[in-house]
Computed example of a mutant assay.
Amino acid sequence: MMKRMKYGIRALCAAAALAVCGCAPRGGYVAAEGVMLGTTFRVTADVRGMTARQLRDAALRLDREARASMSIFEEESLLSRLNDNRTDSVDAHIAYCLRLADSVGALSGGVYDVTVKPLVEAWGFAGRAADAAPDVDSILRFVGRGKVRIEGGRLVKADPRVQLDFNSVAKGYTVDLLAALVERAGARNYLVEIGGEIRCRGVNASGGPWRIGVETPFDGNDLCGASVQRRLRMSGGGLATSGNYRRYYVGADGAKVAHTIDPRTGRSALSRLLSVTVAAPTCAEADALGTMYLAMGADAALERVRADAEARVYFILAAPDGGYEEYVSPAMEALLLD
């Protein structure tokens, strides 16, 4: 259904869903929070025989493992060394993310592509300043999933200048790893959240479904939780929200440059599609699919989800009058609270 809604502009934080549990943990639930992957994390779970401090310490060990493998911002991470051709050996994390990227890339017809690292870097979203005038046509020669593969545990590149960027899947994948950690600790009910991306199971401490807010997507929205557009309820699976309203800048020519790059054009994927929230069996899938839909743009994304009866998506789009339009897929409607 397409529904038009207008909202006042209030300040807000990252393209994210917000866990709104509504109460302090009790009845055997333990809560831990801190910093992971350069953002915040929170876990609420009925773990057995584990204190909040132990849960936090376990999460921080996982953070170190994930960053050492998949970060493009740390020079000595495995991914950075692969990108710089200092090694060709991959680990289980990188192999998993590349397989998932292949699957989502095939769905998207190549719009979702993790070889966009040289473009992301040139536009200033990979830990360094943007090029004054990125030579997009030159860089595109080294972009394309067909230019890299894994053989016998080793990364094979068609050109040494091919580089990978897992920022569209690594956070969701780490959420799944953290969820697996709390399940191994005996949790049957939990909500795991890293930077607004979520994996949950069972019920909250009050015995009801986990409640999650989706933020309003306006430029400069940087105060988490100040403006919630919709609330959802979940009892299992992953949820991720993607948007171009936080990680962006305005170039010298006055044009907006956002972090989601279309690998077909080498430029920002900007359309009236402002925010994409996806529910999927895993958070890694939800994370990658959200980026895929955002990169497709409004028209192509709407066409795809309308043809997929199982797609669980919630789109927020810019309306001609300056307000918002919403699209909620039929499979997603059961998750909406308001």
Rank of each mutant, 00 (worst) to 15 (best):
I316S: 15
H93D: 15
N85F: 00
G146N: 07
E75L: 04
T241A: 03
K256C: 02
K117I: 00
A300N: 14
A66G: 01
G22D: 12
A129T: 12
L78A: 04
H259V: 08
V175Y: 01
S268G: 15
K3V: 11
I94H: 05
D46L: 01
V276K: 03
A319H: 13
D299W: 01
S242P: 09
D84P: 01
A32Y: 07
G127S: 13
A95F: 04
R247H: 11
M332R: 01
R161N: 08
H259A: 11
A258G: 08
L232F: 12
I150G: 08
L239S: 00
V192F: 00
R56G: 03
N189H: 13
M70D: 10
L18G: 00
R188N: 11
A170V: 10
L155E: 06
A31P: 03
Y249R: 13
A32L: 05
G38N: 12
D176N: 01
L270N: 11
N189C: 06
G172C: 06
T277C: 14
R64V: 03
R247T: 05
A311N: 10
V20A: 09
A92V: 14
V111D: 11
F125T: 11
V276F: 04
A269S: 11
V162E: 11
A205L: 02
V143D: 05
Y314N: 07
L119K: 07
S69Y: 02
A101E: 15
L335V: 00
L140K: 15
L294K: 15
S206N: 07
D159W: 03
Y249D: 12
A132K: 13
G105E: 15
I261H: 12
R201P: 05
D131T: 07
L100Y: 06
P118Y: 05
A280R: 06
L60S: 02
T265C: 08
A11V: 12
V305I: 12
D137Y: 02
R231I: 01
V156D: 04
V20P: 01
D308G: 03
T115V: 05
K117A: 11
I9Y: 10
D299M: 03
K171G: 06
A309H: 08
